[in-house]
Design a protein around this nucleic acid. Structure first.
Length: 828
RNA sequence: GCCUUGGUGGCGGAAGUGGUAGACGCGUUGGACUUAAAAUCCAAUCAGGGUCAAACCUGGUGCCGGUUCAAGUCCGGCCCAAGGCACCA
């Protein structure tokens, strides 16, 4: 029996419990079946679910359920990206235990996810902060270290004062910390890096293979990696025998126009290059550059500054001498940290030369419009002048010629340069995966033995320390023995960037409880790569680039044999309220728990999919939720009020024998199956899928309103229509569909049923509306048989009274007929 | 400055390869049911003109032009918004 009224709270709890007990969502590694791996980005357990989560997981859940009904063995797992600073801040501010704080949050949010009715096999849950997981993060680190992919070096790094830790380049947004928005400054520290730059070219090339990724994300990654081709040129220092300054340039064609050279304030040989007279000024300039925050330094508005070092270089092409300056517009980390300045043909150099009265030498001219004096840098194409034996050569050709000269003369060569830098993974924080390394006075830096993993996070730490990792306050952790010689040694006290945990978690899901390995290779290769990944655009560079890199690194370590982790990517839009992003500070958040309590999870699921396509921003409105709830009640009634005439084992009579009304209803069912299936296949356009549910509901109401009593045929056809309908909305409304199906006498779960198929011949109406145009303007609409031939369509159109009237006295030049659609009559 | 994605009623948004612009919903208005309200059901709803009411006519998808029998869709040139990158030599 189906109850008169729809009580979502009651039925949702009932079915969630039932699914748990019957293990409906248990996933088996069944290699006989075709797999489908659908993944949502795992949440950080901040405390409570927000609407962005609800949207993300509803999208992937509907896809998962749809694929399951289509016969796939579907993996749709969930886990927790549970290391990170908020847990540690809770420890510092409220004396909480980070582990307890995190696990409590996970428990709460897990219950919230269950309340949303997600189809998840919780036996595969992954929690990145637990030793059973981070053991393998450490294991991968050691493998990378052995191959030279993880290394330690002293470098100028980004330091967030607020978070008291270093950050990766990708985590500095507009000169500020990605997490706390605090100002970032430069520090010199010895830190662990991963050699992502070894993969720069492959990461760039393979973007082409990512056919199922949005262009926006691909472009962002391309720009981030940013390959450029140019040359290295080396210049001898006039005053110091044997010392050279190399530069990287994309414009070797302008090398005859060099009038000075700039090195970054952090340039390694800067002290050697500074003459005693200039020392004081240079030192002051460097101090100042060091103090300046990233924001100030990166500002393009800023007027360029610099000071001369007092030494000179010799241009091997023409023997000219030019001075060396230091200026902070040269970046220590890019190229060689030194820039050859050609003010005539580079905007920055031009500004700088103007300010300090440095010479500007034109070496490229537009042959059609040569000029003697520049008002701004000329960066366009042209022909070389003032360039010795290169004069008259096209500047594009000159690039190659000058590189060849440099190679012959031994002062340079061609070079490909990337903007991408190595990934800094050390963090001076507690709540992260310990870097499994030991420093031995005799043996140096050595990895922990694999059999000694995991290196556990210590518990006897002091969170109140400043300027160092709390891990370093644990005496029991710090002192250890060397894995090589057994002598006394110290542990690395830095932990890893949390993005280290999240760049391989999706492989762990395939074999989450494995104690002996990160995963079984056979099982992994059954499931991987991920068929569909769903998550926020904010990870376009960070997580998605790191994960791609990690997959390639694991491949080269012989651990896996795939090149790319994610075949298809769906970046879902933000959830807005009143036109802006939901946030606590704006006070426009909506609590999922409240929505569950007032309307139920099915309403929340329906609404969050209904108004916008998944990849666009979604505007949350209270009226919209209300409207969805009303719709569910309306939907409920087509079952509850007519349950007497609905039978699960209906027998659909032969279509040609049906009454017009029943024939139409059957056709409508086929049309709906077709539309819904197509819209899901076409980039998961759930908003139009839901509009089809509503249209079909309207069709059912029309049908019912025109009936006083039901014949045997009516009962069979109605049963067929509404039972097919349940299957079509089951992925979106898992609880309601289950309850209705049970109420009609269904024995097993509705979610085990097969997705309905449609018959192309039946998925169209018997008549169509023929549009008749004159000169492209609609003038008449005629109901005609759908199968009418082209000639007959034309005849029918011309026979129309209205058309006859409008064409009298005019000459019909041409008639264009589009079968099934329209006839356009061209007249003069 | 460069790159990406967008711009359609009062609002969210529909319109495979060019072929009825505005599906579906929200909102609004009217009607039915009710003592009444809520809920529900039915209907209307791009703008302007026209009519007692209709029939009907005209304009309309950011702007300007083009291709075509036919343009929201294709081409050229702009404008605006959001997001990304940005002293990368």
């Amino acid at each position: 029996m189906i109850k008169d009224k729809y009580y979502p709270q009651e039925i949702e709890k009932k079915w969630q419990k039932h699914w748990d007990e019957t293990k409906l969502n248990k996933v088996y590694n069944d290699k006989e079946k075709e797999k489908y791996y659908i993944l949502s980005m795992l949440p950080y357990p901040s405390g409570k679910l927000h609407m962005g989560h609800v949207r993300n997981y509803t999208i992937s859940d509907v896809i998962a359920r749809y694929k399951r009904m289509n016969g796939y063995n579907v993996l749709h797992p969930m886990g927790w990206d549970s290391f990170g600073l908020p847990a540690e801040n809770a420890a510092i501010q409220h004396g909480a235990n980070p582990k307890k704080w995190t696990l409590d949050n996970i428990a709460y949010m897990k219950q919230q996810l269950k309340s949303l009715g997600l189809m998840i096999d919780w036996d595969r849950e992954v929690t990145t902060c637990l030793p059973e997981y981070y053991k393998w993060t450490q294991y991968f680190f050691i493998q990378m270290m052995k191959k030279g992919l993880a290394y330690k070096k002293e470098a100028a790094v980004n330091w967030c004062n607020n978070c008291a830790t270093v950050l990766a380049n990708e985590q500095v947004i507009d000169g500020k910390c990605w997490r706390c928005d605090g100002e970032v400054e430069k520090k010199y520290l010895s830190q662990w890096f991963l050699k992502i730059t070894d993969y720069a070219q492959e990461l760039l090339d393979d973007i082409e293979k990512l056919k199922g990724w949005p262009d926006s994300v691909k472009t962002m990654q391309k720009n981030w990696i940013d390959r450029s081709t140019g040359a290295i040129l080396r210049f001898k220092v006039k005053e110091i025998e044997g010392l050279e300054v190399p530069v990287y340039t994309t414009r070797p064609d302008t090398a005859y126009g060099i009038t000075y050279l700039v090195v970054a304030p952090e340039y390694k040989d800067i002290e050697k290059l500074t003459t005693p007279e200039n020392k004081a000024a240079v030192e002051a300039y460097r101090q100042n550059a060091r103090r300046m925050s990233e924001i100030e330094r990166l500002s393009t508005e800023r007027i360029k500054t610099g000071v001369p070092l007092g030494t000179h270089l010799i241009n091997p092409l023409n023997g000219e001498e030019f001075p060396i300056w230091t200026a902070d517009y040269a970046l220590a980390e890019y190229g060689t940290g030194a820039v050859m300045a050609v003010p005539a043909h580079d905007e920055r150099d031009f500004d700088f030369a103007k300010k300090y009265n440095l010479p500007i030498k034109i070496v490229i001219q537009n042959p059609d419009n040569p000029i003697d004096e520049l008002k701004e840098a000329y960066t366009e194409k042209g022909v070389l002048v003032n360039s010795g034996d290169c004069n008259g050569i096209d500047n594009e050709k000159a690039k190659q010629i000058i590189i060849e000269k440099a190679e012959k003369g031994g002062f340079g060569e061609a070079k490909v340069q990337f903007r991408l830098r190595d990934w800094l993974i050390s963090r001076q924080r507690y709540w992260g995966t310990p870097i499994p390394v030991v420093y031995c006075p005799k043996c140096g830096t050595v990895p922990v033995k694999e059999e000694d993993l995991p290196v556990l996070l210590p518990e006897d730490v002091d969170f109140s320390v400043k300027g160092m990792s709390p891990v370093a306050t644990s005496e029991t952790f710090k002192h250890t023995t060397c894995p090589v010689c057994g002598g006394p040694a110290e542990r690395e006290t830095d932990t890893m960037d949390t993005f280290m945990c999240s760049n391989w978690y999706f492989y762990r899901y395939t074999d989450a409880r494995n104690q002996n390995a990160p995963f079984d290779k056979d099982i992994l290769h059954y499931w991987a790569p991920i068929d569909q990944y769903v998550g926020g655009i904010e990870h376009a560079i960070l997580h998605l680039l790191y994960s791609r890199f990690f997959t390639k690194a694991l491949r080269d370590l012989g651990i896996i044999n795939i090149d790319e982790p994610f075949k298809n990517l769906l970046t879902q839009g933000m959830v807005l309220k009143d036109g802006s992003k939901m946030s606590k500070s704006k006070g426009n958040t909506v609590d999922p728990d409240e929505i569950y309590a007032n309307y139920g999870a099915d309403t929340a699921r329906l609404f969050i999919l209904s108004d916008s396509p998944p990849n666009r921003d979604f505007d949350w409105t209270d009226a919209g939720v209300e409207g969805c709830y009303k719709f569910l009640n309306r939907l409920w009634r087509i079952y509850s009020e007519y349950q007497d005439i609905i039978t699960l084992d209906y027998k659909l009579p032969d279509i040609s024998s049906l009454s017009k009304q029943n024939n139409d209803l059957v056709r409508q069912v086929h049309m709906m199956i077709k539309k819904v299936s197509q819209d899901i296949a076409n980039e998961f356009q759930f908003n139009t899928v839901i509009s089809k549910y509503r249209e079909f509901t309207n069709v059912i109401y029309d049908y019912l309103n025109n009936k006083k009593e039901f014949s045997e045929e009516d009962k069979q056809v109605y049963s067929y229509a509404v039972i097919t309908f349940i299957k079509l909305f089951a992925p979106v409304l898992p609880h309601m569909s289950e309850e209705l199906y049970e109420g009609l006498g269904g024995k097993d779960s509705v979610h085990k049923l097969e997705w309905p198929k449609y018959d192309e011949a039946l998925a169209k109406t018997s008549t169509i509306t023929l549009v008749v145009q004159i000169n492209g303007k609609v003038k008449d609409k005629i109901e005609v048989d759908a199968e009418l031939s082209k000639e007959n369509l034309e005849k029918t159109a011309l026979a129309s009274e209205k058309i006859k009237e409008l064409t009298t006295g005019k000459q019909v030049v041409k008639v264009i007929t589009v079968p099934g659609k329209l006839v356009n009559i061209v007249v003069k």
